[in-house]
Computed example of a mutant assay.
Amino acid sequence: MPEGHSVHRIARQFERNFVGRVVAASSPQGRFVEGAAALDGRTVTEVRAVGKQMFLEFDDGLWLRVHLGMYGAWDFAGEILVDPTIASANGRMGQTNQRGTDLDDAVYDAAGENSLTSIGAPRRARVHVRMSEQTTGLAADDEQWPPPVVGQVRLRLLTESTCADLRGPTACVLQTPDEVAATIAALGPDPLVDDPTDGEERFATAVGRTATPIGKLLMDPAVVSGIGNVYRAELLFRARQNPHTPGRDVPRETVRGIWRDWVDLLRIGVETGQMMTMDDLDPEAYRRAMAHRDDRHWVYHRAGLPCRVCGTAIVVEEMATRKLYWCPSCQA
């Protein structure tokens, strides 16, 4: 599932490639025909990302809300106007894989993703962007425009030069401004949307009022926005916090520390396109971490392997319907 940094990076691409442009909208799959018809011919006026949800505003106050969920993906094709503030514009933007540009110092991982370098200043590049590792067989075709529909595309948004295809979302719905406001109001704080200090207070208050285990609270979008399975495991390990401790029993300063750590890790995730959670790596270790997921996390996906700190075997269990990785010694 895309986590918060992915959705913010996707929103940045929409900002640069769709805001201010008229779109042709269609539903090749046939499951969003009426919604697509309502969007067809409208101009995109704004994009927002809050946690794991993205909101696209069109003229006359019509909004599209998209939640990718477990299997959703956006695919861009065509002329992609690159965002220079995203360090890995040639590589990963959340769950994004761009093809078409090669750099001598690129660092590619097993999925062919270069998350270390940027293609530089803003420019138009004829590239293909794959928004999800689950999507395959989508080679860019410079000769055919618009690109052929591949797979079950719920919604296609098309400008004169850029195409965005949405597959498999949990939610793809039209909303009024009041409905968007209500949806966002029900979400926990997002460090990239809310004032970090106010967000810290909201988060600490929500955690401190309940007996729900902290490991579950970090996955509750009403408590905090954007944290998914990877960040949950890593944040708890970095805080040396037992995931089973009731929220109200977690020391207040520990809760605040988790929020501040989330602020930092989310920023790194947006900048690099990777959920980099290990600190103080030398240049070679950093390159390895960019190239291999197993070298960029403390506990996630390391069940049975020795803890990088104490040597105890990392355990895995199910919590909040997802696999939770943690060290029973460091996080006792």
Rank of each mutant, 00 (worst) to 15 (best):
R99Q: 07
A222N: 14
A37E: 12
R322A: 06
E133G: 10
P146Q: 06
G215W: 05
V22D: 10
L265S: 01
Q241M: 11
A11I: 13
A285W: 02
V47K: 08
V270T: 04
G61E: 07
G311C: 03
L138T: 07
D198N: 10
Q274K: 13
E234G: 07
T197D: 15
A171D: 15
A181D: 07
M319C: 09
R31H: 08
L166W: 01
V255W: 01
L39R: 01
G100T: 06
V150Q: 14
R202L: 04
L103V: 14
A285I: 00
T254W: 04
D294G: 05
T197V: 15
R287E: 14
P213E: 04
H5N: 09
R288D: 13
R124N: 07
V50I: 15
H128E: 15
G228Y: 10
T210W: 00
P146A: 13
H67Y: 09
L305V: 11
T96Q: 12
L236F: 14
E160F: 10
V193A: 05
V193L: 06
V66C: 14
G199Q: 07
A25V: 13
L324W: 03
V230A: 12
M319G: 14
G137V: 09
G20L: 11
G91M: 04
R21M: 05
L64G: 08
F237T: 08
V223L: 07
P146L: 10
L324M: 10
D294S: 02
P148H: 04
L235M: 06
G120H: 13
V173D: 15
R240V: 03
D102N: 14
E234H: 11
A185H: 05
T312Q: 15
L39P: 07
R124I: 13
V255L: 09
H292M: 02
I258P: 00
Q152Y: 00
L62G: 08
A125M: 02
